[in-house]
Amino acid sequence: MSNWRCTGLRWPDGEPVLGWARGGGSGERRTSVLAYGKELGFRAEGERHCVGARGHVCPVRAVVPVRSAGARCPECARLDRAHSVAADTLADDPRTYRVYLAWFGPGMVKVGITGEARGAARLREQGAVVFSWLGRGPLMAARRTEELLRSALGVPDRIPYARKRAVRGELPGAAERAAEIEGLYRSAEALEGAGWPEALERLPFEAVDHAGVFGLGAAGAAARVVTGLMDGGVVAGRLVAAAGPDLHLETAGEGIVVLDTRLVTGWDLAGADARAGLSVPVVALGGGGVQDGLF
């Protein structure tokens, strides 16, 4: 795996897939489909460099902080943000969008939007344990609906990953999970006529549960989380679950540890013994230490 750089964890078809690039991100690319029970091991080498923006290599190959989830220098981060849907700079986007309600744990439900063509991939990338579509329509109508739920119902549009991780080991049953998100759906449904955009088509309630897809039912509770890599640092273990950008690894000596794969991007990686355990900094789950991003 030498000289390969991880480009992040994706969920294109309901299973976790790691992306890889060689040559600073502009050269050869490949993917690795991950399977629960599979042993993984890699070692970070050198320094962590900016991953660039919108598929382009960082022009100065800037060194970035090891604990940053973004892995971008300030200029590349600005360029990437400027072209994102979240930045509200794409008002004339002709594509159809969907509004969703996503549940991450008791009392943790958010509203968001995603491109209809992406299906539920965005929900898996955020680590949503349960979700339901709420409506579909043009971008601005989806945005107005999102804002309506925030203002009328107090539903946030982002939840920090640290909070999501903290509850994954003790989730309530599927029926209780579905009931909480259905309650919010019915409250949102009652808002029609009170600011609901006419251009947004309401979609029927259907709770989609990802606990099995993530492997959370079979995995034990994680106790610790990696806060960053370092030159020569090794991460190794057996994959027992995955959710959003996180891998849950059963490791030698530390039990089940969460690795946020956003911390891996930007590093040159080499293979390591999958049973070598960890030689990177970790903290107790919920102890912080990662500069989190949105959602």
Rank of each mutant, 00 (worst) to 15 (best):
R48H: 01
L153W: 04
V257M: 06
L203K: 09
A53Q: 05
A270K: 08
A53F: 06
F214E: 07
R150S: 12
T261Y: 05
A166E: 12
R98K: 14
N3S: 15
Y97C: 02
L90I: 06
V208L: 05
G70Y: 08
G253Q: 07
P138Y: 03
G135N: 07
V283K: 08
I113P: 01
G46F: 08
V240A: 01
A243Q: 09
R95N: 11
G215Y: 02
A69T: 10
P245S: 07
G293N: 04
A207L: 02
Y97F: 11
K110E: 09
M108L: 13
F42W: 14
A87I: 03
G271K: 13
M140R: 14
G287S: 06
M1Y: 10
G154Y: 11
R78L: 14
W267G: 00
R136L: 09
L229H: 00
Q291I: 14
A162C: 15
V66T: 11
C6V: 03
T114W: 05
L259E: 08
R81E: 09
R224T: 13
V33D: 05
T145S: 13
D80N: 14
E39K: 13
A211M: 04
D273F: 15
L191Q: 03
V63Q: 01
L216N: 04
E75G: 06
G46M: 07
R118E: 15
W133R: 03
V234S: 00
V155D: 11
R30Q: 06
L153D: 02
G220P: 07
M230L: 00
D157M: 01
V257S: 02
V99R: 05
A86W: 02
C73S: 02
R186E: 14
P204M: 08
L9E: 07
A221R: 12
E170H: 13
A276H: 04
G277Q: 00
C50V: 04
F295Q: 15
A152N: 02
E192R: 09
A91R: 15
P245W: 03
L79P: 08
H49Y: 14
P106H: 04
G14W: 11
T96P: 10
F205E: 04
E176F: 09
P281C: 01
E116F: 11
R165A: 01
R168I: 05
E180Y: 03
W267N: 00
R238C: 02
R118I: 12
C76Y: 10
A174P: 11
E198T: 13
G107A: 07
E39S: 13
L139H: 01
L18I: 10
F104I: 08
V57F: 05
F42M: 03
V111D: 02
E198D: 15
V282I: 12
S26H: 14
V99C: 06
F214N: 09
L40I: 15
L34R: 04
E147S: 15
L123R: 04
P172A: 08
G244L: 06
L153I: 03
D292E: 15
E15M: 08
G220H: 07
Q126L: 13
N3P: 12
H56N: 13
R29K: 08
G169R: 06
A178V: 03
T114N: 01
G212L: 07
R5G: 15
P156N: 11
Y36V: 05
E250T: 07
R78G: 13
V111K: 03
V64L: 04
E125Y: 03
